[in-house]
């Protein structure tokens, strides 16, 4: 499996994503935002950071970057795309995923461990064992997922919620919601299930030395599906 990690001006998780993917044996190349061609079977990673300084609104300028044309057609052709943190914001701004990420309810940046209950209906989470709770940190100021009721209902009806914030025991409730996200949503997929956006950083949870290896489950799920 190959992965293309997109670098916008201001992206800073490109190194972390490359590190984590290479560690489990995936070939990684970095793509500067001015390029736009991808290989068909590549996993596109839109990493975290502050693309274009997140000026105006998080992810809003990045959507006009040349690389996003390539990302769009890759997604339309069924290729895999994962947007993490700022990448999730960019996917929402680009219309590839519904909803928006607004300011955390606390009005403050939050960097801390969260616990996630995965959904089942996408290659990103399909092969994660049932009942598993993943420990993966967040790091954002605007990670509060918002969508209207109709959209939220649709996401749930179609089993498109990829991750919900939970307690360490897997209980999804208000006290386990770090940013005020609607229905504790931490990540969603598109209708086809080939585009995932998530606020937590799985690439930061890929080594025991750093506190958690649970992030690897996402990469392994993809590998199992596509090998």
């Amino acid at each position: 499996m190959k992965a293309a990690v997109v670098v916008f001006p201001g992206t800073w998780s490109d190194g972390d994503c490359s590190w984590a993917l290479q560690k489990i044996g995936i070939d990684v190349r970095k793509i500067w935002h001015r390029e736009s061609s991808f290989e068909k079977n590549e996993l596109i990673v839109l990493p975290g950071g502050f693309s274009y300084g997140d000026y105006l609104r998080c992810g809003s300028i990045a959507q006009f970057s040349p690389v996003m044309q390539g990302v769009r057609s890759h997604a339309e052709n069924g290729g895999l795309v994962i947007g993490i943190c700022n990448g999730f914001q960019i996917l929402c701004e680009s219309g590839l995923l519904p909803g928006a990420l607004i300011r955390n309810q606390s009005l403050q940046f939050r960097c801390e461990d969260t616990y996630l209950v995965p959904g089942s209906n996408s290659p990103f989470t399909k092969n994660i064992g049932t009942g598993q709770v993943l420990q993966i940190p967040i790091s954002h100021g605007e990670g509060n997922y918002y969508a209207d009721k109709q959209t939220l209902d649709l996401l749930e009806d179609q089993d498109r919620v990829a991750f919900r914030y939970s307690s360490v025991m897997g209980e999804v409730n208000k006290s386990s919601n770090p940013n005020g996200s609607s229905r504790n949503i931490a990540g969603i997929v598109n209708e086809k299930g080939n585009v995932l956006g998530m606020m937590p950083h799985p690439e930061r949870a890929c080594e025991g030395l750093l506190g958690s290896e649970d992030g690897n489950q996402i990469w392994l799920s993809i590998l199992e599906e596509y090998l």
């Binding site: 801390e112 940190p137 790091s139």
Partner: peptide
């Protein structure tokens, strides 16, 4: 205070 700071980016903080 420190949870308002990203203290993990770059994947080095042991």
């Amino acid at each position: 205070i420190y949870k308002q700071y990203d203290h993990q980016v770059q994947n080095n903080t042991v």
